[in-house]
Amino acid sequence: MARIAGVNIPTNKRVLIALTYIHGIGRVKAAEICTKLSIPDERRVNQLSDDEVLRIREMIDADYQVEGDLRRSVSMNIKRLMDLGCYRGLRHRRGLPVRGQRTHTNARTRKGPAKPIAGKKKVTK
């Protein structure tokens, strides 16, 4: 069992994949870390030596923003936009798409599940 960057305990997967379980580290950054520490692709997490685990941990602490810190900085950025009163902030406040997508239809990811319109008649055959 390896604890890297706080709570994350990746299992007996390959290091490259296991690292992506950390919020803020995807395939690209995982590959970056592996090459920098010269860990071979096929190495699994339970085959890592304590020293290697330590070096991974130190590298992530030093060079990458992950987990809580990353979440905080993202939400701070959104909060900044909202407090500023700019267009993007308004869209965040209303829970609508921010980057100019259409809202006539779709946009369900931002708007959530469709709400029924009161009094609209159902079409029956």
Binding site: R80, L84, C86, Y87, L90
Partner: peptide, 12 residues
């Protein structure tokens, strides 16, 4: 904070 934004962003 507004530096770098455009004026239009603040006038819906």
């Amino acid at each position: 904070n507004m530096i770098g934004h455009k004026f239009g962003e603040f006038s819906p």
